[in-house]
Design a protein around this nucleic acid. Structure first.
Length: 576
DNA sequence: GTAGGGTTAG
């Protein structure tokens, strides 16, 4: 085993051969201070020479080799830890957890945690923050709540990770509850990070006044505190107040300016956003990406690609986000040559296997109808995450290939490495409802989602079921779906049901649904209800009702163009 | 020789 540890090194020693004068007492401080490859190699050679380390050198070794990304070496060190009976050493296990976290193997970190006889507060914090940092906020919070019920006392580190999760999930009640706990334990005093997390949490949970209160009561403020309060204001449409805080701020940094750009972009003020970009001291790729994202989100894809060209020639580096955002714009414009160009660019920058880029490429190719390219992309990604799988399933769904979508879903399920989420099922159910997949199969997936994966159906999931039922003329059953899952007051669900009535030409049911939509005020949002009803009456040759509806539509100022475009794809277009 | 855990922009 020791021989293999030595073989894990990609380079030769930088310190020459290990002299016999080396020992753990000299190597450990060197590992702690420099952590160079040479020192690391010397340490491994020491193990190979039979110098048994105790826990402390192993902790250092794990940290340094983890930082260099020596996955195989760390795994072997894990083996060494098990073989030499260090498994119950909490500090060592915490080091191993850190390695699994930074090498994107949260599952391994969790397994290790479960095997620890005596996890301490750092073990808990490490895993909670691991989940939160990789965007798995719910799992992070569940673990935090478990910690709360355990014998281990949570500290300020535990609370900050939990607050970050509340912020991202918009959980004001839990966030406020954690705040009161923090105050009770006196943890908000003398700790800037706790205050910063509170400002951020309140800001993201639409509670700007609370954010300002926390900010004002903080004994000590750093740049993050100021950035958090500026962002809280602009996020809650208080741009003026945000600018006021900005002008009070002692040392704005790049993040501050990027937040200002974001605030202007979100309020649709691209001119001021540019001005900040031009005037700020050190714009980075994020500064540019923020404006790029603004264009894509406001459906100005042409402007986005133009801006990307400017960004490219400005000399600022392109990162994985720049590429994925511009790919979204290109996908919307469906200009394949540009997409290929970005693909080449990603290859050149070595960013093509990053999941954000890879999934954006899959999405772009499938939106341009080039499924083969999307597939090629998908199968060459070494470590696929759920976003990548979802992008490919969505690609099949978009192109109406239910067989392939279902096949891929089954494979995802069989591999058992990743759990399908609500987006996976959204794509799966959508393709089922569009491709006349047998109803029992479609319903089977719907039930699997609820019972096997514990995913609460959203109104969009139900809409797919409603559409599938509508195609088979089962509109009354579809109506039951709305009631059963509690979407009786959701206009979107009734809209889907009206579409279902229209698909199976069921005038009687459509009349009931239209009445419900008028009652909910859904009919006032646009002309959909009137157009569907008018077409249905026309189909049934009820011309008197058709002219009545046309009269209402004229009074509402509905134009011919709107009428025909809305109906596209429903095969019932009537020209007025 | 005392490691191992936390916050802000996209």
């Amino acid at each position: 085993m020791l021989r293999t540890v030595s073989n894990a090194f990609p380079t030769r020693s930088h310190v020459g051969s290990t002299s016999s004068s080396n020992s753990w007492t000299t190597i450990v401080p060197a590992l702690a201070r420099f952590g160079s490859i040479g020192v690391l190699r010397a340490a491994v050679e020491l193990i190979n020479d039979g110098e048994k380390p105790d826990a402390s050198p192993l902790v250092h070794l794990l940290r340094v080799s983890g930082n260099y990304g020596y996955v195989s070496l760390c795994q072997q060190l894990h083996g060494y830890v098990i073989k030499h009976g260090f498994v119950s050493d909490t500090r060592l296990s915490n080091s191993l957890m850190r390695f699994y976290k930074i090498s994107d193997s949260l599952e391994d970190a969790h397994q290790l945690f479960d095997e620890m006889p005596d996890p301490d507060v750092i073990s808990w914090n490490s895993l909670v923050s691991g989940y939160v940092q990789s965007g798995r906020f719910q799992e992070g919070l569940c673990l935090f709540l478990k910690l709360h019920r355990s014998d281990v006392l949570p500290n300020e580190f535990s609370f900050t990770a939990a607050l970050a999760a509340c912020a991202r999930l918009n959980l004001w009640p839990l966030g406020a509850c954690i705040h009161s706990k923090i105050v009770k334990l006196g943890l908000e005093k003398g700790n800037v990070v706790v205050g910063n997390c509170l400002i951020d949490m309140y800001g993201k949970c639409a509670s700007m006044d609370d954010a300002v209160l926390v900010f004002q009561h903080m004994e000590e403020k750093d740049t993050v505190s100021w950035n958090a309060i500026v962002a809280s204001c602009s996020r809650n449409s208080k741009l003026e107040l945000g600018l006021w805080f900005f002008h009070q701020m002692p040392n704005p940094d790049t993040v501050t300016y990027n937040e200002l750009i974001d605030a202007f972009v979100k309020s649709g003020d691209f001119n001021n956003a540019f001005q900040v970009l031009l005037d700020m001291p050190n714009p980075n790729s994020s500064s540019w990406n923020t404006i790029l994202t603004g264009y894509v989100n406001s459906e100005q894809s042409g402007e986005a690609t133009e801006f990307f060209t400017k960004m490219h020639s400005s000399g600022v580096g392109l990162d994985e986000y720049s590429l994925s955002i511009v790919l979204a714009a290109i996908a919307a414009l469906a200009v394949v040559p540009w997409g290929s160009l970005i693909h080449a660019c990603a290859l050149k920058l070595g960013l093509d296997s990053r999941v954000v880029v890879a999934s954006a490429l899959i999405d772009m190719y499938s939106k341009c109808g080039m499924l083969k390219h999307a597939e090629l992309m998908f199968w060459t990604i070494p470590r696929k995450n759920l976003i990548v799988w979802n992008a490919m399933i969505s690609g099949y769904a978009r192109n109406g290939d239910s067989n392939e979508a279902i096949k891929l879903f089954n494979q995802l399920k069989q591999e058992r490495l990743l759990k399908p989420d609500r987006f996976t099922f959204l794509n799966l159910l959508a393709v089922c409802s569009h491709c006349e997949v047998p109803m029992e199969v479609t319903l089977g997936y719907f039930e699997m989602m609820i019972n096997e994966y514990g995913i609460k159906p959203s109104v969009e999931h139900c809409c797919s079921i409603i559409r599938a039922m509508g195609q088979r003329g089962e509109v009354w059953q579809a109506k039951n779906v709305i009631q059963e899952f509690g979407f009786g007051y959701d206009g979107v669900a009734w809209r889907a049901l009206l579409g279902a009535c229209s698909a199976c030409k069921d005038l009687k049911a459509a009349k009931t649904v239209a009445a419900k939509m008028i009652e909910l005020g859904e009919a006032d949002k646009d002309e959909y209800v009137y157009i569907v009803m008018s077409n249905l009456y026309a189909y049934h040759e009820r011309w008197r009702e058709v002219s009545q509806i046309r009269k209402i539509m004229r009074e509402k100022g509905v134009t011919k163009e709107v009428g025909s475009s809305w109906i596209q794809g429903q095969n019932v277009a009537v020209q007025f």
